[in-house]
Design a binder for these strands. Structure first.
Lengths: 259, 259
DNA sequence: TTTTGAATGTGATTTACGTCACATATTGTT
DNA sequence: AACAATATGTGACGTAAATCACATTCAAAA
């Protein structure tokens, strides 16, 4: 499944795989100063960050960190995109989130010192900055604005996890796929008032997000296409009838029983 | 489903239902100073708390706060127990957590200012202390130890929510009940090395936690009893064979497919 | 181009478990 | 003790969706 990592791209030292390097390069400085979490930070704060941060590059599909590992580094995604996933005992993949450039992960272990709760995979080639737990905590103590932002992000994670639990507990598999499609939609960059998904993840990846099977996702997509609600053209899915899709996602099963 | 609340118990002013009162009573002072989150706090911190806190009493099954409400008070459970739940469009109840005395809730809205994400019900008669969002934020800014504890609690919530998502996505309904039973077990106060659940929640409540139906919970409990793994005697469930129960909870469906 | 491995589409079959329908048991109340 | 009112136990049944099994299409190398 995972490619054996070949360290060719973006590595200047042949032979030694230089995956970790200090962030004191012009590239690192610029990227970190502009990073959303640190936007508007004082010079002192930025100094702490730049002094402690390291850069790490990784290639598509590389496993950046894995569950149960006893490490607490916080990772900032400067370029690329990562997926946070877990595997069931039987090997089924469950995806928690996709973090694009500008996001960060790994803060849970940094905050409570416990092992990693999930695996993180690079969706594509990535440039990451890392901070040790000690440095991250220093940062939180030093800059209350950043501490507040981190806390807000934790709250956002809880809210979305709670939503997900509600979805898993109460929606049908089809509905969960509808919901996932709705979550992934972005405004069409050319046509206004129109929505699309690009690039469309593989059906297996969508299935992992919606906690169902690849086949079910295929059936849902076929049905949507047949009903002219969404249309797939190679790597993009055009949403033709948003209202109808939302209706499908929301329609409550004729249940009515209040227990 | 919910009893219409009759304000008889613990109310001294007949007529007016005095649900909110300042915490400046000896009862309030003692309870708050001993409260886990505030344990070891400085006099200044405690002063802020006591000055801003109010007490609120509520009776069993009362709805303490409800989803989508635009309010951000934080609640501290001084006595009693509350359940955090949500309802699906079709009315099915999904329980997130049961918070005993010493716990708190409502901090999400206080932190991010967004509406309530769930409903909170009193399991039994409760004594609660409340803090406005402003007071809570002041507290976080004033006392970094408390801020850190709150952050740790948020992380704990995320970890358990992620576990729950994994369970929902990968375990069978039976297994989810096993898992829930295992979660609720406590060491037997009299017999050492023995586990039990007391008081055993109703099957409907267990079903809400495990996201299944009451009937399924009944079947699981019957099966466990039949196999001498657990035995129910009125309000307590004795776990007779912990190892076997854990094995049942963990047994991976013969799936093996890695996708 | 040809080849080879993923990714996708769709039928047929199976099954876990929700739903429905009661009977029985356990509570708490007059 | 008698009575509701809740809570529990268990069969029968239907169905959503997982599983299995291919055919087909697409996309990346050789």
């Amino acid at each position: 499944m995972l490619d054996t990592v070949t360290m060719t791209s973006e590595t200047e030292h042949p032979g030694v795989a230089a995956t970790v390097e200090p962030a004191h390069t012009s590239e690192g400085r610029a990227a970190l100063a502009e990073f959303p979490l640190f936007k508007g930070a004082s010079a002192a704060t930025l100094d702490v960050i730049l002094r402690h941060a390291n850069l790490r590059r990784c290639v598509a599909d590389e496993e950046i960190l894995s569950r149960d590992e006893q490490a607490g580094d916080v990772y900032f995604v400067l370029r690329g995109e990562v997926r946070i996933v877990n595997y069931s005992a039987s090997g089924r993949e469950v995806a928690y989130a996709i973090i694009p450039a500008g996001g960060y992960f790994g803060e849970l272990s940094a905050i409570d010192g416990r092992p990693r709760s999930a695996n993180v995979l690079a969706v594509e080639d990535c440039l990451l900055a890392t901070l040790t737990p000690a440095a991250f905590k220093e940062l939180l103590a030093l800059d209350s604005e950043i501490a507040a932002r981190v806390m807000q992000k934790l709250v956002r994670i809880i809210r979305s996890a709670d939503d997900r639990i509600l979805d898993l507990a109460t929606l049908s598999a089809y509905q969960r796929v509808y919901v996932e499609v709705l979550r992934m939609k972005k405004p069409d960059p050319v046509r206004p008032n129109s929505w699309l998904i690009y690039p469309l993840p593989t059906q297996a990846q969508i299935a992992a997000l919606a906690s169902t099977t690849r086949e079910t996702v295929a059936r849902v997509l076929s049905q949507l296409s047949h009903d002219h609600i969404a249309e797939r053209k190679s790597k993009t899915l055009y949403i033709r009838d948003l209202a109808r899709l939302q209706a499908l996602a929301a329609k409550s099963q004729p249940d009515g029983k209040m227990n």
